[in-house]
Design a protein around this nucleic acid. Structure first.
Lengths: 233, 233
DNA sequence: GCAAAAGTGTTTCTACTACACCCATGG
DNA sequence: CCATGGGTGTAGTAGAAACACTTTTGC
């Protein structure tokens, strides 16, 4: 990526990529190494990028995800921008920025997106020396994160919590194409921070016209196999 | 405002300022004149500004409102950023930008805020040659607006529609300190695009502990005077 | 006394809650 | 045959919706 492709080094996008492993929510983070006085310092950051010339914000976020995962058509929603002057106060972050962009950086305003992906889709990191990992959300607080990325993750989580009430279809972006009611309930309860009654939840889902039963059941489980459902329209 | 105060001319804030006149929602727009080939061209724009050095996004939006209205402690909430490369494709907008900032401008990413103010508060425009007017929301579609400001206003309206369900207190930012249940219902229905039943609405409000009745009634009306209420806490 | 808006209760329906047992399957 | 999770119905409660007449006041 050559410098003249860059729009300007003052605006970036960052993506909070959520996944669900059947038990808890995960977030996709990039390993970052900084060579500081000949000592390697490791931490994590959100996938993100400076905005390219002639690129819309949404396009930039979409590009970041495609470069990172090899996937297209990922659910993406802008939720907030962060631009405090103290975002880039940490000397390690400044060092990393200047090494990465080869430019002198003042501060960066970043536009943050939430992305939802099915964790079973195999992620193929295109970029050679980039490593991405799924991290448990409740461990994020104890990890070292670049810039204000911990804050961004929290705001992103708040955002999907609010929006699942309005747009319940967001749930299905996180589930496999064929899923059981248990999986759906587990995800629903994780996001809503509730514990639903099994029977009441079945009734609720039965009224969701966009969840349809398949003539299939799950396989390879050491107990009665659950019916599979899919999301429609 | 001297140029070295400016952060950089690539990031701005714009404020969608809503008011309520008792009948409908209004938005505060700035008159803009552009001298184009010795002909004056007039249109309107949202109040906004480039971000200053060492200024947080929220601070910038707050400053814009204080400079414009003379008021402090206005409800403000960031809702979305706009950064499409075609935002600054209109030659008139480019001309205006260069005249205003005295800088060569590529494109601008703007962070948009919603502000809610009581329309009875007298607005004192500080800036000499700036004129601000309350415009009816349903006339916005037919007016000439700078940049993508029409789109920003629509997204801002969507935002408060969603958020009034979650934070009903937002309503009181738009009403006078003392208000009648009718005024509250009228505003509620305008924002929700509903027509509430009068009795049911009274019952609903009676359960809102943060709406308290005063020992006062409205004055100067040619019919039975309505009781006044205030918002508490 | 009339025009104009304020204020007030009851019934119905709907949506959510609580709660316990039998079923199918693999080992 | 047993351990594990899958699947089902009913009764009670609380919140939303429908609906019409009397009251107060200025003119």
């Amino acid at each position: 990526m050559s410098n003249q492709n860059l729009y300007n080094p003052h605006v970036s996008v960052d993506c909070v990529v959520f996944g669900f492993d059947g038990e808890q929510l995960k977030v996709l983070l990039i390993e970052r190494s900084i060579n500081e006085q000949n000592e390697l310092y490791n931490d994590k950051k959100l996938p993100g990028s400076i905005i390219l010339n002639d690129e819309d914000l949404d396009e930039a976020a979409s590009r970041v995800l495609t470069e990172l995962t090899g996937l297209k058509n990922i659910y993406l929603s802008q939720f907030r921008s962060f631009g405090g002057p103290d975002r880039t106060k940490n000397p390690r972050d400044i060092l990393w920025l200047e090494n990465t962009t080869q430019l002198k950086i003042g501060r960066i305003v970043t536009v943050a997106y939430v992305a939802l992906i099915k964790i079973d889709r195999k992620i193929q990191v295109k970029n050679d020396n980039t490593q991405a990992n799924w991290c448990n959300l409740n461990e994020v607080a104890t990890m070292n994160l670049a810039f204000d990325h911990a804050k961004i993750i929290n705001k992103g989580l708040e955002y999907i919590r609010h929006n699942l009430d309005i747009e319940p279809h967001l749930l299905f972006e996180l589930l496999p194409r064929k899923f059981t009611i248990s999986q759906l309930r587990s995800l629903y309860d994780t996001v809503h921070q509730t514990t639903s009654d099994v029977r009441n939840f079945h009734k609720k889902v039965a009224q969701w016209t966009y969840v349809v039963a398949l003539d299939e059941v799950e396989e390879g489980v050491p107990h009665r196999a659950a019916r599979l459902y899919k999301y429609k329209k």
